[in-house]
Design a binder for these strands. Structure first.
Lengths: 215, 215
DNA sequence: GTCTATAATTAGATAGAC
DNA sequence: GTCTATCTAATTATAGAC
């Protein structure tokens, strides 16, 4: 970053942030190929040339926007680990699930973007998998392994289970516009999201720990 | 369709079919905006001009490809209704789920395309919802209502339940390339797909009919 | 029916003034 | 830092030969 007055720095950082936010939205809506940098600039109320100034180009802008989204997710998942270390592995798993649901309810763009990139083998998919998805599911899989060690396992393959949970948790939000049009229900409404989280958590409980008594 | 010799008709129909198949694949991979008609023509090993000849343009080609995909899905779901009319509503629901899983395992493009269009409010989304998604989920919701009438209901909202089932069933397949890269497992392998169907069906059973004994 | 060639539009990138 | 203006390359659409 070059030398600049404080005022300029603040203003510039703000513009940079607005571009990042707009970029996440547009990339999520249109996919990388379909997204137009002009639309991103317009939504950010910024000049087209500033994309090159701040991010060099479309590809790097995409990476910056995705990185920011994952940082937010990681904050959400880490915030106040209110499940004690010695506790039930299933309880810990449930908390992760609940927080994930809350996050995608708040940021449905995240789910949309992931859906879009995970569906074909590309350098961007591998970049995402190596940098974020792999490490983060390693953590999830560790939770599953703990549950397994405590004798709480369904016969479900861990691969199936992971995508079942992610899909069950996320699809209403990634497809929110269709859901609104078809049912009149707005999934991003926090009250709906919380009840949806309940449903997914209940599901995880029965799937992972079939022997456990329902509360 | 204009008058033509039999040979020409056959050859033309074949080209038309190849374009439709390629179109579904490319639209699913890139999204409508990102898809290029040139790529569709190349994959179909057909001339670019034939897209106008057969389908008038990109939009109508998309509609034709989607219609064909839904017809296939409907065939899959309708094929040999081997659940008798008087039978358990949960059993009927499970069969629908199992068949849906088999279908998306065979045609992951379907799930990808739906994910892509359902994520924003557009004329195409509404066209899909009015023409296919609405009517087909009306059938699914009827199954759920039957289960409800038989006293087999979880407290889950039908909206949540629908997207939970679709997401749990479909995400591994729509994200198959990521899954392959990350875990080495190929979800489209029929053996995996069948075990995944087992898992989703077990899940539906506990979610919809929590009182039911596990087999 | 299938092809070549091209028109019209739009994309990402960028030069250079301020 | 932000803007206008423009370049180059791609895109869809299409006219017209065979």
């Amino acid at each position: 970053m070059q030398i600049m007055t404080v005022a300029r720095k603040v203003r510039g950082d703000d513009t940079r942030e607005r571009i990042l936010t707009a970029a996440l939205a547009v990339f999520a809506e249109r996919g990388f190929d379909g997204a137009r940098t002009r639309e991103i600039a317009e939504r950010a109320d910024a000049n087209l040339g500033l994309i090159k100034y701040y991010f060099e180009g479309k590809e790097r802008l995409w990476k910056a926007a995705v990185t920011r989204a994952f940082e937010e997710l990681q904050e959400e998942l880490a915030a106040g680990a209110d499940v004690p270390p010695g506790a039930d592995a299933v309880a810990a798993l449930e908390q992760v699930v609940r927080r994930f649901v809350r996050f995608v309810a708040r940021r449905p763009e995240f789910m949309r973007l992931m859906n879009d990139e995970a569906k074909r083998d590309s350098p961007r998919m591998r970049w995402l998998a190596d940098r974020f998805v792999g490490p983060m599911t390693a953590a999830l899989d560790a939770q599953l392994a703990r549950a397994r060690a405590q004798g709480l396992v369904g016969a479900v393959s861990p691969v199936s289970l992971r995508y079942i949970v992610l899909g069950a948790a996320g699809l209403v939000f990634s497809q929110a516009p269709e859901c609104r049009y078809l049912t009149g229900v707005d999934p991003t409404d926090p009250k709906f999201a919380e009840r949806h989280a309940d449903a997914v958590v209940a599901l995880v409980r029965t799937a992972v720990a079939p022997r456990r008594r329902r509360r």
